[in-house]
Write a protein that binds this DNA or RNA. Structure first.
Lengths: 158, 158
DNA sequence: GCAAGAAACTTTACGTGGAAACTTTTTAGA
DNA sequence: TCTAAAAAGTTTCCACGTAAAGTTTCTTGC
């Protein structure tokens, strides 16, 4: 979703800046957190050309075979116009198949190919493997709590 | 930072999708949270044409008068090339002033104009005002804890 | 004190994701 | 059943933010 990004230069001993209320502004904190985790993602997966949106798309098709393209887009909060392009890329790489079902010929059903399943299995290992992709200062408990709060904040838990 | 965005259509009773491991994937959760909060931001501030990045930039200049442009960019994780354009826009609106200091004529020092200070004061009220911009299911305690965890996750607390 | 390199932006050109309009298929209403 | 409206994707065009290269000003080593 975000282009592979060059690191923003970060001074070893950056002058002190008063963040003021940004320190407690969720919008700001969420953005910084996302920049950080996306950078980590590209550090690990950038070589493959795999992007966060593609990764989550593949994972979701894997968990929900035959899912309709629109529902996929809604779930991942990806705009339909963008989803169309992403799906085409994945199809070009022969990772997924598109099928127009007879019961509704407007829609598109998606499935992983054999190669797609293998690819997902492989990337999944790299993603959850223990290395510095997940490096941060949170304890495992805090990490789970952060995930819980985010699910509640987003409404994903409902 | 993100363009004003049309709402992704969200079905009232969306079919159930198995999120699988995305349910505990910080990258995914952070992205969804950010989409959500940016949408809220535009709902409230979109009319003014004020964007999240501009808002935080103005806040930071307000708290750190005379801050250098590069340090501002580092702090907000905004790329220098983009910061240049944003600063120009804000200068065109006469909200800030750019000054080339004599002790280092490569750099740029930033300050709010009188109009800028008034504008920030005004928007700050709207931003922290109690209305549905901050609507979510978190309790106040949970919201503070979320902010704390995000600061720790990002390293902003160090 | 002069050249070589670094630092702090700025400019240009581009890629990604989005809004709006379009196509095709399905549903609803008369 | 025939037309109007809605639904699901797709296409086109555009804006935002980035990378890479360029400019000017400092700094450093000789």
């Amino acid at each position: 979703m975000t282009p592979p990004t060059e690191k923003t230069p970060r001074l070893a001993s950056s002058q002190r800046v008063d963040l003021g209320e940004l320190n407690t502004t969720l919008g700001f904190l969420l953005r910084v957190a996302q920049v950080r985790i996306f950078d980590s993602f590209y550090e690990r997966f950038g070589d493959d050309g795999l992007r966060p949106g593609e990764f989550s798309t593949l994972l979701l098709i894997d968990c929900n075979p035959g899912i309709r393209q629109g529902l996929l887009a809604q779930t991942l909060w990806i705009k339909p116009a963008h989803m169309t392009k992403m799906i085409r890329r994945l199809e070009d790489q022969a990772l997924i198949t598109r099928e127009i079902p007879d019961d509704d010929r407007r829609s598109v059903k998606l499935d992983l190919t054999e190669a797609g399943r293998a690819y997902v299995a492989d990337q999944r290992l790299r993603h959850s493997g223990a290395n510095d992709y997940h490096r941060h200062d949170l304890t495992p408990t805090e990490e789970r709590e952060l995930a819980r709060l985010l699910r509640k904040f987003t409404g994903l838990d409902r």
